[in-house]
Amino acid sequence: MLFVNVSVGGMLTAYAAPPVLMVAAAWGWDSAFMAAQFGWKAAIAVLVNATGLLLFMHRKLPKHAERNDAPAAAVPVPTGVTLIHTGFLVAVVLSAHHPVIFIGLLLFFLGFTQAYEQYQSPLMLRESLLVAFFLGGLIVLGGLQQWWLQPVVASLDAYALYAGALGLTAIMDNAAITYLGSRIAGLPDQAKYMLLAGAVAGGGLTVIANAPNPAGFAIVHKGFHDGSVSLLGLLIAAVVPTCVVSATLLLL
């Protein structure tokens, strides 16, 4: 459910998730458009999924959560450090289309976290680089797939396109699906909607279905007995939340 909600939450704005970023500029979709066409539906789906899980699991949740893994005396984080982190986050969003400024901000952020590491959680650089290299390879090589993708997509109706995007996302990553779709000329508006909706709805089916999933897996895998997540178990657990998302996107 976590992976599904993270994927769907990426539709709230035009820059919140890789699959949306891949098409926002190409199709002229800004954050206002995303909020009007997708965002409110995504919010409803997230609320329904989270509420349903809470009702289903409330008897198994302890009344007072125990934090046995928490340090005995955590170092309080100064307000200034929190404000600097927030400032970096805002600056990165504003400079997303200016690589020189973005790289400069990244270097300053790495230096800041190194200088004040007692107030920082360890940076997940390996997971971030894996996502970055994947998306970079997608941009470089994705255009070469247009020759076979365009006739296939053109032959599908809207609902078949939604189902195909949802299914392929589980094995290809949803950013790959939407990027390849953005390379197709003359795609109707309904097909654009169905392509993005299907790709994002399937973002929780597998670990590779959505770029943030590996980072999320690195955080939550410690809660499992052997430190690993069953692929089949993840798929089965994601079926109901994915159906909720599909119903929200297709029926509302």
Rank of each mutant, 00 (worst) to 15 (best):
M1F: 10
F3V: 00
F3M: 01
G9N: 13
G9I: 02
M11I: 06
A14F: 14
A16T: 14
V20I: 13
A24G: 09
A25M: 08
W29P: 03
Q37V: 04
A43W: 14
L53N: 03
L54F: 11
F56D: 09
F56M: 03
M57Q: 14
P62A: 01
P62N: 00
K63Q: 12
N68E: 11
A72R: 10
P78D: 02
T79C: 11
H85W: 09
T86S: 14
G87I: 10
F88I: 01
F88C: 06
A91H: 08
H98I: 08
L107S: 04
L107E: 01
F108L: 15
T113Q: 10
Y116N: 13
Y119W: 07
Q120D: 07
S121L: 13
L123I: 14
L125R: 11
E127Y: 05
L129Y: 04
V131T: 15
L138M: 07
L144R: 12
L144P: 13
Q150L: 03
P151C: 02
D157F: 03
L161M: 05
Y162I: 07
N174I: 00
A175D: 00
A175N: 00
Y179W: 05
Y179I: 04
I184H: 00
D189I: 08
Q190I: 09
L196P: 14
A197L: 07
A197F: 04
V200G: 02
G202I: 07
G202L: 12
V220K: 12
G223A: 11
F224L: 03
H225C: 03
S230N: 06
L231T: 10
L232R: 14
L235Q: 04
V239T: 01
P241L: 06
T242Q: 04
S246N: 06
S246G: 10
T248W: 12
